[in-house]
Measured scan of single mutants.
Amino acid sequence: HNLTITQGKLFFHYNPKLCLSEIHKMEEVSGTKGRQERNDIALKTNGDQASCENELLKFSYIRTSFDKILLRWEPYWPPDFRDLLGFMLFYKEAPYQNVTEFDGQDACGSNSWTVVDIDPPLRSNDPKSQNHPGWLMRGLKPWTQYAIFVKTLVTFSDERRTYGAKSDIIYVQTDATNPSVPLDPISVSNSSSQIILKWKPPSDPNGNITHYLVFWERQAEDSELFELDYCLKGLKLPSRTWSPPFESEDSQKHNQSEYEDSAGECCSCPKTDSQILKELEESSFRKTFEDYLHNVVFVPRKTSSGTGAEDPRPSRKRRSLGDVGNVTVAVPTVAAFPNTSSTSVPTSPEEHRPFEKVVNKESLVISGLRHFTGYRIELQACNQDTPEERCSVAAYVSARTMPEAKADDIVGPVTHEIFENNVVHLMWQEPKEPNGLIVLYEVSYRRYGDEELHLCVSRKHFALERGCRLRGLSPGNYSVRIRATSLAGNGSWTEPTYFYVTDYLDVPSNIA
């Protein structure tokens, strides 16, 4: 807008934040220059609390790290170098490059900038070799853009010569660093050979998330399962459950009422301010606690030095998902009996873990797994792929695949051998790939016309006998059925096997 004052003059007093240069501009645009008398524009009460600059400061050096910015700028000295009290560095987070010096300023003089007072450097006698002032900004957020400017702080001049310097606002972004852990990993099994893994992005990506790394490792069953005799009275049979499938998407929606109208769909109840505040506090606490764990609990591995020492970490090797089922080394339970199943799973520490690289999504279907087997899954978020990966501390989750139908069934015939004193040795093959492992066998036998009897055969007993022995049988026709019990439950009964026990007292003698 054009402003013209045809008559009258300007009068400025007691404006401590208004620089004289701005008042002189007002004289020019209003056409009143030359009308004012000496005392109409006070030299001592206008701009006496402001830094009124008329020179431009330029930054000469900028260096960044993930949490620091090192700045240096060209030296500046007023005509009387004693008038320079120091520099004021202003900075704040700036997602967009549209910041002005006066953003967030209120009537009390406060604003949204963080201000650092910096002492002037030592003055050199040689004007050509003056030290460049600077400042190291610490405690910054990774991968965050900051708006920065600097200006001088000078003393009051009796001659009211307006001098000083100020830089333009520059924008500097800190470097990326390792992201925080992925949030809320959930693993479920939808079949006997697959596990579905879902997660949420890290709360602090500290860069642009480029991919996720998912490692999985087959877990050995508890050692007590191999040692305890679950045929003993009072000892509860062990059981394991597989990871249940995901709930429906509708039930997972946030901010939804727990109660549904019987007449149909209901609208979600909005969260109160107290609920939102509580969630923010919980989120802040979780982030602080995660940072504490990362800094205190997890110790970084030592990389190899120039002395030739090897990095103890196993090298990563990509495998196809079809090879995942046989990740671990199978060892027989008892070496003397080769027909026992290889369900003991000690994992070799030198073995390469299978892994998958996930790009542009937060889910993965891990296939080719062994049925009813526990897996430990390790999830890392990465925001750099080359020249070397920059990934987060791992988040861990466990899951067990679903049982395989008929995996616990005894394959092959049940054979028998009759000894003296009416002892019958029953023999059968253990299931080759049971659900988890076989903890015991149930032997059901009966003599024709009598009630059915049951015998429990422990895992250890089966390994020693290759089956079991029935003792003290009365003469007669017998039928026997056997079924295995694994961590997933009972298998199917075998087809009945028949044998006849004679009275050993009636056996004919070869003595003449």
Results as ranks from 00 to 15, higher is better:
residue 203 S to T: 11
residue 203 S to V: 04
residue 204 D to V: 13
residue 205 P to R: 13
residue 206 N to K: 02
residue 206 N to F: 04
residue 207 G to D: 02
residue 207 G to L: 02
residue 208 N to Q: 15
residue 209 I to T: 15
residue 209 I to P: 15
residue 210 T to V: 15
residue 211 H to T: 08
residue 212 Y to V: 10
residue 214 V to C: 10
residue 215 F to H: 11
residue 215 F to I: 13
residue 217 E to Y: 15
residue 217 E to Q: 15
residue 218 R to N: 05
residue 218 R to Q: 14
residue 219 Q to D: 04
residue 220 A to V: 12
residue 221 E to S: 14
residue 221 E to M: 15
residue 221 E to W: 15
residue 223 S to L: 09
residue 224 E to A: 13
residue 224 E to P: 14
residue 226 F to V: 06
residue 226 F to G: 05
residue 227 E to T: 10
residue 228 L to S: 06
residue 228 L to Y: 15
residue 229 D to L: 03
residue 229 D to W: 02
residue 231 C to Q: 04
residue 232 L to W: 04
residue 234 G to V: 08
residue 236 K to Q: 05
residue 236 K to W: 05
residue 237 L to T: 04
residue 238 P to E: 03
residue 239 S to Y: 15
residue 241 T to D: 15
residue 241 T to K: 15
residue 242 W to Y: 02
residue 243 S to K: 15
residue 246 F to E: 05
residue 247 E to C: 13
residue 247 E to F: 15
residue 247 E to R: 08
residue 248 S to A: 10
residue 248 S to L: 07
residue 248 S to Q: 15
residue 248 S to H: 03
residue 250 D to I: 13
residue 250 D to P: 11
residue 250 D to R: 04
residue 251 S to Q: 13
residue 251 S to E: 08
residue 252 Q to G: 10
residue 252 Q to I: 11
residue 254 H to S: 15
residue 255 N to K: 02
residue 257 S to N: 07
residue 258 E to M: 05
residue 259 Y to W: 09
residue 259 Y to N: 12
residue 259 Y to T: 12
residue 259 Y to D: 06
residue 261 D to R: 00
residue 261 D to N: 12
residue 262 S to T: 10
residue 262 S to Q: 12
residue 262 S to Y: 11
residue 264 G to W: 09
residue 264 G to N: 15
residue 265 E to A: 14
residue 265 E to I: 08
residue 266 C to D: 07
residue 266 C to V: 08
residue 267 C to E: 08
residue 268 S to M: 12
residue 269 C to V: 08
residue 271 K to P: 08
residue 272 T to S: 12
residue 272 T to V: 05
residue 274 S to H: 10
residue 274 S to A: 15
residue 275 Q to Y: 04
residue 277 L to Q: 11
residue 277 L to A: 12
residue 280 L to H: 15
residue 281 E to W: 05
residue 281 E to S: 04
residue 282 E to P: 05
residue 282 E to D: 15
residue 283 S to V: 07
residue 283 S to L: 12
residue 284 S to W: 13
residue 284 S to H: 07
residue 285 F to D: 02
residue 286 R to D: 00
residue 286 R to E: 06
residue 287 K to P: 06
residue 287 K to G: 02
residue 288 T to A: 14
residue 289 F to C: 04
residue 290 E to F: 03
residue 290 E to A: 07
residue 291 D to C: 06
residue 291 D to L: 03
residue 292 Y to C: 01
residue 292 Y to H: 01
residue 293 L to R: 01
residue 294 H to L: 02
residue 297 V to S: 01
residue 297 V to H: 06
residue 298 F to E: 02
residue 299 V to Q: 08
residue 300 P to K: 11
residue 300 P to I: 01
residue 301 R to E: 01
residue 302 K to L: 07
residue 302 K to M: 06
residue 303 T to V: 08
residue 303 T to H: 04
residue 305 S to Q: 11
residue 305 S to Y: 09
residue 306 G to K: 13
residue 307 T to R: 14
residue 308 G to A: 13
residue 311 D to S: 13
residue 312 P to M: 07
residue 313 R to H: 00
residue 313 R to N: 09
residue 313 R to M: 02
residue 313 R to D: 07
residue 314 P to Q: 15
residue 315 S to F: 13
residue 315 S to K: 13
residue 315 S to I: 09
residue 316 R to F: 15
residue 317 K to I: 12
residue 317 K to N: 10
residue 317 K to Q: 11
residue 319 R to P: 11
residue 321 L to F: 06
residue 321 L to S: 09
residue 322 G to Q: 10
residue 323 D to A: 10
residue 324 V to L: 09
residue 329 V to G: 12
residue 329 V to L: 09
residue 330 A to L: 03
residue 331 V to M: 12
residue 332 P to F: 15
residue 335 A to M: 13
residue 337 F to P: 14
residue 338 P to H: 10
residue 339 N to A: 11
residue 339 N to I: 12
residue 340 T to E: 14
residue 340 T to I: 13
residue 342 S to V: 10
residue 342 S to Q: 13
residue 343 T to P: 10
residue 344 S to W: 12
residue 345 V to G: 07
residue 345 V to F: 10
residue 345 V to D: 10
residue 347 T to F: 07
residue 349 P to L: 11
residue 350 E to Q: 08
residue 350 E to V: 09
residue 351 E to P: 11
residue 352 H to I: 05
residue 352 H to R: 08
residue 353 R to E: 09
residue 355 F to I: 12
residue 355 F to T: 07
residue 356 E to M: 12
residue 359 V to K: 12
residue 360 N to P: 13
residue 360 N to Q: 09
residue 361 K to G: 05
residue 362 E to Q: 13
residue 363 S to D: 12
residue 364 L to G: 09
residue 367 S to K: 09
residue 367 S to H: 07
residue 368 G to D: 11
residue 369 L to I: 03
residue 369 L to V: 09
residue 371 H to T: 15
residue 372 F to W: 05
residue 372 F to T: 03
residue 373 T to P: 02
residue 373 T to R: 07
residue 374 G to P: 10
residue 375 Y to H: 11
residue 377 I to A: 04
residue 377 I to G: 08
residue 378 E to L: 09
residue 380 Q to C: 11
residue 380 Q to T: 15
residue 385 D to H: 13
residue 387 P to T: 15
residue 387 P to W: 14
residue 388 E to L: 06
residue 390 R to H: 06
residue 390 R to L: 13
residue 390 R to F: 06
residue 396 Y to M: 08
residue 396 Y to C: 03
residue 396 Y to V: 03
residue 397 V to R: 13
residue 398 S to T: 15
residue 398 S to Q: 09
residue 399 A to K: 15
residue 399 A to P: 06
residue 400 R to M: 08
residue 402 M to L: 03
residue 402 M to D: 03
residue 403 P to K: 03
residue 404 E to H: 12
residue 406 K to A: 12
residue 407 A to I: 03
residue 409 D to R: 15
residue 410 I to V: 15
residue 410 I to T: 03
residue 412 G to N: 15
residue 412 G to S: 13
residue 414 V to E: 03
residue 414 V to G: 02
residue 415 T to W: 03
residue 416 H to P: 14
residue 416 H to T: 08
residue 416 H to G: 05
residue 417 E to C: 05
residue 417 E to H: 13
residue 418 I to H: 04
residue 419 F to K: 13
residue 420 E to W: 09
residue 420 E to A: 05
residue 420 E to F: 15
residue 421 N to T: 10
residue 421 N to F: 03
residue 422 N to E: 06
residue 422 N to V: 02
residue 423 V to L: 03
residue 424 V to E: 01
residue 426 L to S: 01
residue 427 M to G: 11
residue 431 P to H: 00
residue 431 P to L: 04
residue 432 K to Y: 10
residue 433 E to F: 10
residue 434 P to Q: 08
residue 434 P to T: 06
residue 434 P to A: 05
residue 436 G to A: 08
residue 436 G to D: 06
residue 437 L to T: 01
residue 437 L to Y: 15
residue 437 L to P: 09
residue 438 I to Y: 03
residue 441 Y to R: 02
residue 441 Y to V: 12
residue 442 E to C: 11
residue 443 V to W: 01
residue 443 V to S: 00
residue 444 S to C: 14
residue 448 Y to E: 05
residue 450 D to L: 08
residue 450 D to K: 09
residue 452 E to A: 13
residue 454 H to S: 04
residue 455 L to C: 14
residue 455 L to Q: 11
residue 456 C to R: 06
residue 456 C to V: 05
residue 457 V to P: 01
residue 458 S to M: 07
residue 458 S to G: 11
residue 460 K to V: 12
residue 460 K to E: 10
residue 461 H to P: 05
residue 462 F to L: 06
residue 463 A to I: 10
residue 463 A to K: 11
residue 463 A to R: 12
residue 465 E to F: 10
residue 466 R to M: 13
residue 466 R to I: 08
residue 467 G to L: 06
residue 470 L to N: 03
residue 470 L to R: 01
residue 471 R to H: 10
residue 472 G to K: 14
residue 472 G to V: 13
residue 474 S to A: 10
residue 475 P to S: 11
residue 478 Y to M: 01
residue 478 Y to G: 00
residue 479 S to P: 02
residue 479 S to E: 15
residue 479 S to L: 05
residue 480 V to H: 00
residue 480 V to Y: 13
residue 481 R to M: 09
residue 483 R to W: 01
residue 483 R to V: 03
residue 484 A to P: 07
residue 485 T to Y: 15
residue 485 T to G: 06
residue 486 S to Y: 03
residue 487 L to R: 15
residue 487 L to F: 02
residue 488 A to D: 04
residue 488 A to N: 09
residue 488 A to Q: 15
residue 489 G to A: 05
residue 491 G to S: 06
residue 491 G to W: 00
residue 492 S to R: 08
residue 494 T to I: 02
residue 495 E to W: 10
residue 497 T to C: 15
residue 497 T to L: 09
residue 498 Y to C: 14
residue 498 Y to H: 12
residue 499 F to T: 00
residue 499 F to Y: 04
residue 499 F to H: 01
residue 500 Y to N: 14
residue 503 D to L: 06
residue 504 Y to I: 11
residue 505 L to Y: 15
residue 506 D to P: 08
residue 506 D to M: 10
residue 506 D to G: 10
residue 507 V to L: 00
